[in-house]
Structure formats: C-alpha cells, structure tokens
Amino acid sequence: MKLRNAFVAPAALLTAITMLAPLAIIVVYGLLTRGAYGGVELPWTIENFTGIWNPVYGLIFLRSFWIAAVATALCLVLGFPLAMFIARSGARKNLYLSLVILPFWTSFLIRTYAWMFLLRDTGIVNTSLQALRIIREPLPLLYNDGAVILGLVYGFLPFMVLPLYASLERLDRSLLEAAADLGARPLRVLVSVTLPLCAPGIRAGAILVFVPCLGTYLTSDLLGGSKTVLIGNLVQNQFTASRDWPFGAALSLALMAIAMVLLFAARNRGEELL
C-alpha cells in the first residue's frame, strides 16, 4: 500500500462509517413498518414513500423551498457588497474576515435564543420602541416566516460571504479598469464583468446557504413557533411526537434527493457559464 493511501485511509473509513452507514440505516428504515412505540418492524413496504405524495406534505416542501430561496437571495444581496468591501479593504482584510467568522465562536442554538430575546413581545426591540413611544402595542416580530428568514440569513450569511470574497479577491483588477476604459459605467461593469466572473463564488455560496436552510428545523422551531412547519420540523416530528420512524426516514430521503437534483442542475449550468 502506498504511503499516501495509508494517510487517507482513516478519514475515508470515518466518512464511510459516519456518513454511508447512517444513510444505509435510513434507507432500510424507510422501507420498514412503524412500530407501536417508535422503532421499526417487518414487513417491508414502500408505503412510506408513496405516503409523501400528499398535498399536505407537498405544501410543506414548497414552503421550505420558498423560505430557503428567499433566505439565499437575501444572503446574496447582503453578502455581495460586504464581500466586495472586504476584498478591497487592503491591509484590513484579515480583520474583517475574522469579524465575519466571529459568530461561529458561540453555538448556533444560543445565538438563535438571543434573537428570541431581541424579538419577543417583551424583548429589547419592542420594549425600547415602546419606551420611546414610537409604538403602543408590541410588534409581532417573533413566531412568523419573517423571523425564520431573519434567523436563517443571520446564521448563514458567512457561508455566502466567504466564497464570494474568495472569487472577488481573485478577480483581476485590470479587467474592471478595461471595462471602464471601454466606456462602461460602474453598474455595467458590475453586471457585465464582475458578476459573470464571480459566478463560481455565487454558486458555491448559494449552495452552502440554500441546502442547510432547506433542512433547517432549529431556526423554524424557535423563531417560527408552531405556525411555521418546514420539512426539517416534519422529519423531527416523525421521530419524536408521531413516533413514525419509517415515514421520517422516507421524508428525509425525499428531501435529500431533491437537494441533490438541484445541486446537479446548478453544477451543469455552471459549467456552461464557465
């Protein structure tokens, strides 16, 4: 065995055990019957998968896609100027980049709770606005789609900013000068040169934000309350309250399949552009 393989082996083995094995278990569970108190039993069946084909679940899938898409779009709109600013800030680049990554030093759960403290009826935002006599009744800031999207954008913005920064940083400045030299105003330089050349970064950022947003359950659970049920929460419910593990397994596989189809489509489209 080559030395190189010897070094790769532990990581490969770990990946196989922690990724492929659970996946295999989920596939098997998805094909079994639910047990009376959770767990799974024989016989084999495909009813869990056919059961997804129900308008109620279809709507939840659509809602999840919609919320993930809006969060991704907002991350892009907010992240692009920020990434551009950092890429052009010379010696301060590293400082700004570490500020972008700083939130990761605290758990995502705690940061999401912090948003609850900010947004709830007796939270800092509402009480401050009331104290300033701008509003009389507290604003409904928490437990709606807006709060979920806010939480997702807040949580995943760094995943958009970092790949965007990487591609903007690599962008040859003389191309931007050439565009201006040929008569392009700043907006046209952005649309015709900067954006097309940053396409790989935009795509990477969009994937890194969209996929976890699609499967989110923590943010929607804490900030969305009972009104916002997304696929992630649906899967979670099957394994907890509903005690229907096979259906939960089938739902998560369906989510994974859709996400993979989308990623594949994005990749093919990307190669065309390049």
Partner: peptide, 27 residues
C-alpha cells in the same frame, strides 16, 4: 475613465475571459 475618449491596450491585455473575441471587441 468611461467619459474619456482615450482607450488603453493593457500590458496583460485584460481581455474578458468570459466573452468571445467578438464579445470583447463589441464591449
């Protein structure tokens, strides 16, 4: 720069890599 009636041939040429020859000249 975009209001000056001068044009530059850059040392590195600075051709737009995502455009064809036609696209570069039409820019």
């Amino acid at each position: 720069p975009y209001q000056r009636s001068v044009n530059t041939v850059f040392q590195s040429y600075a051709l737009f890599p995502h455009l064809t020859v036609q696209g570069n000249i039409e820019f």
